Amino acid sequence: MPNGIWKIDKRYKGERIQESTGTCDREEAEQYLIHRLEQLRQEKVYGVRPVIQWQEAATRYLIEFQNQPSIWLTAIYLEQLDSYIGDLPLARIDDRSLAPYIKDKLQGGASNRTVNIALERVIRILNLCARKWRDDNSKPWLDTVPMIAKLDEKRASRKPYPLSWEEQSLLFAELPDHLRRMALYKVNTGCREQEVCKLRWEWEIAVPELGTSVFLIPAEFGGRREQSGVKNRDERLVVLNDVARRVIDGQRGLHPSLVFPYGNPDQFGPTAVHRMNDSAWRKARVRSATKWEEIHKTPAHPGFASIRIHDLKHTFGRRLRAAGVTEEDRKALLGHKNGSITSHYSAAELDQLIDAANKVSATDSRAPALTILKRRQG
C-alpha cells in the first residue's frame, strides 16, 4: 500500500490483476476490487471491452511516435507520471488522479508551464485512446476524454530579466572561468543554452572578405538530445561581434571538435557541458546579489537574484533594440525565423550584421545607454 493507496495484486481465472484502486479507504478499495472482478467476468463471458491501463497507452504512444523530435522529452514526463497513474484504468485518469502529481511537482519547484507540458501529453494520449486506438472488437480504448484543467501560466510565469551592465559585471565575476566564457559568448550572440554547450568547430565558416568567421548551426542539431533539433527547424547563423570573437579565439586548441569543452584542456577526453544552469551558476547569482546589496545598501532586484541562463539571450536582444538595431537585423542575430535562408547571406549583409552586433559588444558602462524600467519591489 505505497503512499497509503490500496493496490490490487490478484489472480482471476489465470489472469493476474495488478493495478491501483486510487483510494486510501479499505472499504472503497474492496468495492473497487469487486467491480473489477465483475468487469473481467463480463469480458470473458460476453466479450465486453477490456479495461486498459494508462501504462499500456503511454507505452504505445512512445512506440508509435518514436521518431518525433521531442519524443525523448515526452518519455521523461511519462516516466514521472507512471508512479502516479501508471496502473490506473484509462477511465480513471482525470483531475483528481492527476492532483498528487501536480502538487508534488509544484512543491518541488517546477513551474506551471512545466506541469502543463506533462498534462498536454496526458490529454494527447487520451485523445488517441478515444479517437484512434481500437481493441479487438473495434471499440475505442476510451469512451470520452475528460476535461483536464491546466494551470494558469500567465500569472505564474516569470518575465524575462535583461541584465544591466553593472549586474553583468557582478555576476560574471562570480562565475568559474569556463562558465564565464560561455556566458560572455551567449550574451554577445543571443544563442540558446545548448547552442553554446554543444557548439562545434566544424560549424565555423570563414568569411575571407571580412577577415572573420561565423558559425552556422545545422537544422538537424540535436541540442541536449539527438533529435531535439534547432528550435525553428532552420539553420542558425551565429554572427560574432568583437567580444564573441575574442572568446572564440581563446577557445582554439582546447579540443578538436568542441568549442567549449569541460575538463582538462591537455586531454581530448572531456565532453561538452551538459547545461550552463548548474550549481555553479546558481551559487554565483546568490553571491552577486549579495555583493549588489553590499554596494548599494538595498536588496538586489528579484530578477537579478534569480537570473536565468535564458535571460542572457533576452539581454542581448534588449541591448540590440536600445542601440537602434532594426527589427529585421535583430531577428537575424537572435536566430528568429523571418523567412530568410541564413546560409545565403552575402558578405555585405554579414558585415552589416556584425556591425549591428558590435553596437552591444562593450562589457561596461561605455556601451549604448540602456534604461530598463523596473517595478519597485516591496
Rank of each mutant, 00 (worst) to 15 (best):
K337H: 15
P299A: 00
W203S: 12
R245Q: 13
T290G: 15
A244S: 07
A280P: 09
S228R: 12
F260W: 02
D242S: 11
R236Q: 15
W201A: 04
R285V: 04
V207S: 07
E204A: 12
I248H: 06
I309K: 00
K283R: 13
D329M: 13
F221N: 07
G269N: 13
N264K: 07
L216A: 11
L312F: 08
R319M: 02
D242L: 07
R319A: 00
Y262Q: 14
T298L: 06
P299Y: 02
L258H: 10
F268I: 13
L240E: 08
V259G: 05
T298K: 10
L334N: 04
E328K: 15
P208E: 13
F215K: 07
L240G: 08
E235M: 09
L334D: 04
W281Y: 08
S213D: 09
A305E: 01
K337C: 15
F268H: 15
T315I: 02
A272F: 01
V230K: 11
G335H: 07
L199A: 14
D311C: 04
E209M: 09
S213Y: 08
A206V: 12
L258A: 09
E220Y: 14
R330Q: 12
D242W: 10
R252P: 13
G263P: 00
F316M: 05
V325L: 02
G324R: 08
T298E: 09
N232P: 07
H255V: 04
A300L: 03
A323C: 02
I307L: 07
L216E: 12
E327G: 10
W201S: 01
L333R: 03
G269P: 12
S279A: 15
A323E: 02
K231H: 10
R224K: 13
V325Y: 03
S288R: 00
R233L: 14
A289L: 06
G223H: 10
I309Q: 01
D329G: 11
D234A: 14
G303E: 02
K231S: 09
L240I: 10
I295Y: 02
R225E: 14
S288M: 00
K331F: 10
F215H: 10
I217W: 08
H310N: 09
V214D: 05
S257E: 15
